[in-house]
Nucleic acid binder design. Structure first.
Lengths: 330, 330
DNA sequence: CTCAAAATCGATTGCGCAAACGTTTTTAGT
DNA sequence: ACTAAAAACGTTTGCGCAATCGATTTTGAG
């Protein structure tokens, strides 16, 4: 049978209240009593029932994290970082995967907001803030991660998307490139929109023609990179900007297979999940935009616990900056 | 305020029992009543409280997964696969990361077996079955994944480690290699032990000298591969067997940087997490051992739910086989 | 029309725990 | 020695729900 708090109380010769307070250190207990209680706990092998506890207190000490793709090491590392932080605070992490599918995200939002977790971290794949917001009970602690909505109704932690891409395009221009193509992620995502917008601004500011043909979109999975590349190469690009790590990885492989050499035949700038999915054999021949993945995870963890502790806390938007590592000099 | 089942009952003009039974479909309810109940639920925006539910029923519809390294795509993909299966069955997944640290694993085992999850999946980093078993309450549904213990007291899902390595060594021998080195993972792990054992057997069966110097151990993180390689190259190996994907990846990079070419200068066989962390630019110049990561995850999910439903189910050991993909012919 | 079976629902209990409220004992100040 | 405060603990309630037990009504066979 299950050992309950009253079994312990009986054996220790005290009340259940005393046992509870002893365990939780919520009121003064004499040394003598404390020892008796712990002796009884040990003898019976008592463990407080987590369900009963969280039922009683309303706190689950659990946060959910809805990610678009667990197997993508960008998110894997982020999860690791979040879990690492949360575990130091005594919280557990529930993972849900959406595979960039809006309906799956909706299902998970519904399930996780129904009393399973104290708060939610979401790297959303949705594009409609209205739909998203309608799924979140008012006041529910939630922090958007990596991807945000125009709508400022949620706290968020993300990376700056505009600046690195703008800089990348300018650098390419300064190095004499005039046909700069870009491979974006899913068009509906805020990160993609911001990056493409930065690209457009830079192109215009550099005085280059705003050529729609040079903008193509993938889906942030490896396999989609090839079609994007084929399109851009057919439009005789002399430089490429790749907005996502897995596609950047695939780009390197594909270029290599086509016999194209970096720098000599084509220049490359890419978002890179460093030490994770880019090929170090090439990373010194291209400009790398290195996102602070671990900081992202850490900040996300901090923010969500903050909101859990104080759901009235003001909306908070944190934007981290990526490192820009230019190609090594020839 | 929180909407509870009695609010619904009051508005619908029925008892709480009827509301509960309507929701859970646990006894007959007339169409008329059902409609009234659902109307009330909708009007109030009622969601059953998950904590109260799991407290009442004892079921949390949650399983825990203790992994050694989330950021390793081998486990990332496995997690994805597990989560994918569990979500179809209405279960949630709690992730805990140990970073191959036994104490962290112990902590997590304690926490997760204390009523937070219905069952546990563990890719253990421990070497002592006694210690491990002492942390698991008797009868607790648990399935070992990828790594097992000699001790047969738990169900497990793993891959065959012996056969592919034995075959790898024999192939290398047949191709004329006589100085075959091997890079293993953490020496304490069952997977490593089995792979090294297979290597030894093959070496002996091929009539080669059993040279301890050709066996080196890494820790299954990228960075450890270089020291291993330095050691083996210093011992003039003409062939390498690498037992783990991340280290294999690093091996390719390091060999390349040293100006060594696969097949010409050195032969390579490696465990490879296909499409994930091996470099496709090289994968046709080496023998690849491709583990069925997704099947592993799926089977793990099936097994743990099976044990949750029937904790008395007999111990079950499932061993999946890896694919062996030889290098392309020259 | 009768009566048992089926259909339909309500009242109530208790899961294990935290905590509000209350009681008794000790301590210390004057 | 008297009393208030502090120390130390006990009694009890209720969180929200599932499910047991039981009550009432309806149905249909004879």
């Amino acid at each position: 049978m299950k050992v309950t708090i009253s079994d312990v109380a009986r054996l220790a010769g005290v009340s259940t209240a005393t046992v509870s307070h002893t365990i939780n250190e919520t009121r003064y207990v004499s040394d003598e009593t404390r020892e008796k209680v712990y002796a009884a706990i040990k003898q019976l092998g008592y463990t407080p029932d987590a369900s009963a506890r969280s039922f009683r207190t309303g706190k689950k000490r659990t946060v959910g994290f809805i990610v678009p793709d667990i197997s993508n090491r960008f998110f894997g590392t982020m999860i690791e970082s979040v879990e690492n932080y949360l575990s130091t605070k005594g919280y557990h992490l529930i993972i849900a995967n959406t595979k960039e599918n809006m309906d799956r995200e909706e299902t998970n939002l519904r399930l996780l907001t129904a009393g399973l977790v104290d708060g939610l971290l979401v790297a959303s794949t949705m594009d409609d803030p209205e739909r998203f917001r309608s799924l979140i009970p008012t006041g529910f602690p939630l922090v958007l991660v990596d991807r945000t909505f125009d709508d400022n109704s949620f706290s968020s932690v993300s990376v700056s998307n505009f600046q690195p891409i703008y800089r990348a395009v300018c650098r390419l221009y300064q190095r004499g490139k005039r046909r700069i193509g870009i491979i974006g992620g899913l068009p509906r995502l805020s990160s993609t929109k911001e990056r493409i917008s930065a690209y457009r601004h830079a192109i215009v500011d550099c005085g280059l023609p705003d050529d729609e043909e040079l903008i193509v979109y993938g889906d942030s999975m490896e396999r989609s990179a090839r079609a994007c590349l084929d399109a851009l190469l057919a439009r005789s690009c002399d430089a490429l900007v790749v907005c996502q790590g897995l596609m950047a990885s695939e780009t390197l492989i594909y270029l290599n297979q086509k016999g194209l050499t970096l720098k000599r035949d084509i220049e490359l700038v890419a978002f890179v999940d460093f030490d994770s999915n880019i090929n170090p054999l090439f990373s010194d021949k291209m400009d790398c935009i290195i996102q602070p993945v671990e900081d992202l995870g850490l900040s996300a963890g901090e923010q969500i616990l903050r909101r859990i502790e104080d759901p009235e806390a003001p909306i908070f938007e944190k934007i981290l900056t990526s490192a820009y590592r230019p190609a090594a000099e020839a």
